[in-house]
Design a protein around this nucleic acid. Structure first.
Lengths: 199, 199, 199, 199
DNA sequence: AATGAATGAGACTTCATTCAT
DNA sequence: TATGAATGAAGTCTCATTCAT
């Protein structure tokens, strides 16, 4: 019986084709949006027949899901690699934020796709789990930091979500204005206080 | 030549029809996404023919643009009304954040639409201008607060964007989990410091 | 909410269009086969856009099902009308066979469609029920005839099936050779004995 | 130029492969229908690449034609073997009918394929010739039987077709209901009179 | 002999939009 | 104003067939 597309063993040429399709799809999706981009657009750009697309992917939907899965996995890896085994929890947050801004600056297309995916139920679930995990990670660091008296006591979960809100929005704006994200300012705000109210 | 739809004078019954179409469209768009929702879906739910739709709106695209324009205008009004003539700039930020969390909690559909619109060039421009304005508003308050020594000197623009990032992401999460946004925690973080680092 | 296609109320023009589509589809299906006939072929012949097809039918499959349902209903009506209230059960069989040969000769396309439908599970069920009913009808007449000593005792069900086998195959051959079915010979065989063995 | 596939000399392993493809194809065709079964389905089930298929068969169409040719040849052989050199023509009919019911009961898939093939012009011709021959055979026996006064004078050709109609329909029904065909009842009807009308 | 990647026409179907009634 | 029939381009996807390896 034929293998599911995902499990199919690919020749090295096949692997390259697949990557090429992914790359082009990411670009087009980010540029025009998921729905406005047709499979014909994608294969047209790569210069292959439509069948090729369906040789490597089950459907257009499957393709986006694949893209999202890969991207979030990579981002996570990037973050983990940055944090490594830093003992200071507050510094871990900092390194995580830096890594995120960094990676998103290098993959501006991805954020658009994630943002889109979040607006359509079919894809939203795919993301929720990943977001949960990243939130929990941050909560862990923040809780530890509170325990060590490095930051004031507070609602760690809300803080974690806020931090993601900041990094994401800063990244979006940086991409929109085609300028590098103000990393240091963000770090100052997230780690040393958003406004540093005089209180 | 016929008038542009928007400018056409409507009977009060016509006005109601239009509002009903808008309402249904917002719900469906938020629920299933813009593209997956067809014009037939919308008019079907309202119980009118397709002609009606094209009497009130130039196109499906026009409809979403209209929705976005209206929504952002309303949000802005809500914010302005809250801030009113509060003299303390930091307090103005606070009131603005409160008003935003408030309004988004009552209009969870809108945020999805805005988030989607941001991912497709056709709509993105519509939003950029509004975002610019709201950023500038916040920058003004923050700059004034710095001038008065209420908050530490810093990059006001980045702060403004960060605050929007927080309110938006907190709102999204609140909607996702169907729970009220942790308003006080957010206020504390935005106004009195995100982590309030011990430094 | 929009009505299911089947229940949609049609204008008289709409009703005609639908009939035209049915007619052309029956012809094409019978001529080239169901699968080799594309929806494009059908609407092309009628001279309308593809959307029209899907305005009147849910799918190509639905269309064939509809055709089968209508055809079998009509055939049954024709048979019933012929038998009417004939008291002699053997004569009822005769009238039924005559009516069947008659109707199939006038609707040679239908038999091909039914024959095809029988070979594909999706449609086979649609037919089985109808066949059951017609078999039971014949069994009733035959049993009554046996009771009255009009025919020898025997397996009524097998007889009924055999009679259908004869009428169908005779009809097919008549259609194939483009000649009228040998009605009298068939009647003689079915009613007075297939070979009339000398036994 | 390469030899026609059919004439190519095959190694014994090659012969087996071919048979396996035929066997699987017959099963799938009978199960799902000819068109709904893809070449990929067939080779997938056998566990070979697509190239293999096209090594042994010119096309999918060719495959079905081959199947039909083989099947009808085998059925004919089975019938001939049964009739052998029976001198009584009426008994020859009986033996032929028995052999046919027998063989169709053992090869229920084949009948579906033949039935399907009859509904599509591409294959119909392939079958017509075979049907002609078998009709002529039966006509010969029947005419002889009439000459010997074993059966009443009548339209031998119509009788022959009727007999085929009976055996086929009985076989189909037996397959459908997964029960053995009522051989004796059929013999009685075909040889000694369908209803044995009292006339 | 065999594989599996590639092809590309064409299948079915949807849908924004128009327009006669 | 309103309807619903009609349009037809475009969308996703399938599949018989070919061919480089």
């Amino acid at each position: 019986m034929s293998l599911a597309r995902a499990e199919r063993k690919l020749t090295s040429r096949g692997h390259e084709r697949r990557q090429e399709l992914l790359r082009v799809a990411i670009d087009k999706f980010a540029e025009q949006g998921y729905h406005p981009t047709s499979v014909a657009d994608i294969v047209g750009e790569v210069g292959v027949g439509k069948g090729v697309f369906y040789w490597y992917f089950t459907s257009k939907e499957d393709l986006l899901r694949e893209i999202l899965k890969d991207a979030l996995l990579e981002l996570r890896r990037h973050q983990q690699a940055a944090i490594c085994d830093e003992p200071n929890p507050l510094r871990r947050i900092e390194l995580g934020v830096r890594a995120t801004l960094d990676w998103l600056a290098e993959h501006p297309e991805v954020q658009r796709l994630v943002d889109f995916a979040r607006t359509e139920d079919t894809f939203a679930d795919e993301l929720r789990r990943g977001r949960e995990i990243s939130t929990e990670d941050a909560v862990r660091h923040l809780t530890e930091a509170m325990g060590q008296g490095l930051i004031k006591q507070g609602d760690a979960r809300t803080m974690a979500i806020a931090i993601r809100g900041i990094t994401d929005e800063i990244s979006r704006t940086a991409t929109d204005t085609d300028s590098p994200p103000p990393v240091e300012a963000v770090i100052r705000m997230t780690v040393h206080g958003l406004t540093g109210g005089a209180s």
